[in-house]
């Protein structure tokens, strides 16, 4: 379970998160929506310790991120993260992209790591690309490899930071398809996204984030069909009517 308590994050004098509290239950899919610059990505990056924060706490299965004694590496290896720009390692083949952390962090043998890489690649439908370099793959394929790389660590939860924003439109579907399957398998997921169709059909809960706070939250039907806040209505009318 992920619990965020009264989180404040400042970059210098700019306060990006102004007291955010939320919980994500095991097996739950939570989508964070809202305009750019509202703090969605920052919130996500705080959850696996890629960004520090000034006030509040994040508790992941009882581990407090605000506690200076907490080993962030240990937290990170239990939480998968998928980035907007994939961030595959360009100097390594698909296989090594996946096996690197399995070998160095999980201390698997080469054979075990290879088997795991193959298993995860089959899961995202890219087994035949195991010996390719990232530059030889399309954007959609790269993002699916990035998902496989994160899944290979058997994370307790997966964080997605706008996973389809950098993709050509025809490749969005294949990535969302993999994410849908993951959600159906019961993976705990926190997804920052502009794909409202995905959010509506896959999310258990939607959080609308505006100007550093969670302005509104609820099940997709409530947020999309009966938004309470003016800001939510404004945002939805903009993104749904293009």
């Amino acid at each position: 379970m992920i619990e965020v308590q009264n989180l404040h994050k400042r970059f210098g004098t700019l306060e990006v998160l102004k007291g955010v509290s939320m919980t994500v239950e095991d097996g739950e899919v939570v989508c964070l929506i809202g305009a750019s610059g509202g703090g969605k990505s920052t919130l996500l990056r705080c959850i696996n310790g890629l960004e520090s924060f000034q006030e509040g706490d994040i508790i992941i299965d009882g581990v407090h991120l605000a506690d200076p004694k907490t080993d962030l590496n240990a937290v990170r290896r239990e939480i998968g993260m998928v980035f907007q720009h994939f961030n595959l390692f360009p100097h390594l083949r698909v296989r090594e992209n996946i096996t690197l952390a399995l070998r160095k962090v999980r201390h698997l043998s080469a054979d075990e790591a290879n088997e795991e890489a193959m298993r995860q690649l089959q899961r995202v439908g890219l087994a035949e690309k195991i010996d390719a370099y990232p530059s030889q793959l399309s954007g959609g394929q790269q993002q699916r490899v990035a998902i496989a790389r994160a899944l290979a660590m058997h994370p307790k939860a997966m964080l997605f930071d706008e996973p389809t924003s950098a993709l050509d439109p025809e490749m969005v579907g294949e990535v969302l398809g993999v994410m849908r399957e993951l959600a159906a398998e019961g993976m705990t997921m926190v997804v920052v996204t502009h794909e409202m169709g995905f959010a509506r059909t896959v999310a258990d809960r939607i959080l609308f984030i505006h100007d550093g706070v969670i302005l509104e939250e609820g099940p997709p039907e409530a947020i999309f069909d009966h938004p309470r806040e003016v800001r939510t209505r404004e945002f939805l009318s903009k993104v749904l009517n293009v």
């Binding site: 590496n73 980035f83 690197l100 962090v105």
Partner: peptide, 27 residues
């Protein structure tokens, strides 16, 4: 080297030293 490379490596649980050795320096 793109900051995203370091973030991806750290998000997989690699330490700062491992990230340097296996991801940043080879590139």
């Amino acid at each position: 080297i793109d900051k995203g490379q370091v973030e991806a490596a750290r998000s997989l649980g690699l330490t700062g030293g491992q990230t340097m050795r296996y991801v940043v320096l080879p590139q």
